[in-house]
Write a protein that binds this DNA or RNA. Structure first.
Lengths: 136, 136
DNA sequence: TTACATTTGCATCATTGTTGCATTTGTTTT
DNA sequence: AAAACAAATGCAACAATGATGCAAATGTAA
């Protein structure tokens, strides 16, 4: 699916900033922060445009935001029907800072207090990725 | 254990801001944000002092910070030997915004990619607490 | 090609994280 | 009890990020 197809499938205009952000996320196999997406071409779009575009893409559920334990935010494409799962699990390498989505391979059970209702579960696993384990 | 005992047990001076923050957290059965702690006495301590005190208490592992999916941060006392567990699970009520620690009643398994190493697991469950379920 | 809603860039403000430095305070030693 | 010293505090200041209003530019459909 091309960037243009994704956008029109969600009734979004085919604009420069949207195409750029989706292009970068599509190329990447890790989640990216706003700055990581921007870095190659810092002056390409205004900061606010960038911010609003990410928000729009998130609202349309084309991408999802991942909040890490150090308070930073990364974004990734919704590649695997993320919308219908209650579990959002990600791995965060504490050395190279890469973040990747863990799809379908996680199990989680929690005994909540009486009468509590669970709606979504967000999991971030911190550790070392394969590359960083070897380079130690 | 009193606030003063906690502080001296960790080689920390018995200062006003520390006693105030620990006192508030001790009284509360939910995790509190910086503003929630401050609110009752907004002018009591400087913003920076507050910030640095929370950081110190966190470094000494007297309290722990909880990062929620909406990017806000809350703090809670380490009541149950938090230091030796790899799992940090919290419940966040999306209606009243209360956050509480889920201790020992959670199970989590993740199949990580080959050669990845897990160190810590952070879980935030979003949903409705008992009080908010009833008031619906 | 025009028309219109949408998107963008710019100005601007709020909040939060962070550091440096002079002053004040808590604790230890004499 | 006072002096001495390291540590904590308040203040000024700056960076990064989240957010909104508005006029100008742009995408798309008529």
């Amino acid at each position: 699916m091309t960037v243009e197809e994704i956008l029109s499938a969600h009734d979004l205009k085919n604009t420069g900033c949207r195409k750029f952000i989706l292009g970068e996320l599509l190329k990447s196999n890790t989640a990216l922060s706003e700055n990581e997406i921007k870095d190659p071409f810092p002056e390409l779009f205004d900061r606010v445009t960038f911010y609003r575009t990410l928000k729009t893409l998130e609202e349309k559920e084309i991408i999802h935001r991942i909040v890490l334990n150090d308070n930073t935010v990364k974004y990734a494409l919704n590649r695997h029907h993320h919308d219908f799962e209650e579990m959002h699990a990600h791995f965060h390498c504490e050395k190279c800072d890469d973040v990747l989505c863990l799809n379908g391979k996680t199990k989680f059970e929690a005994e909540l207090p009486k009468d509590f209702i669970k709606r979504e579960v967000y999991v971030v696993i911190e550790g070392l990725c394969a590359g960083c384990v070897q380079s130690t």
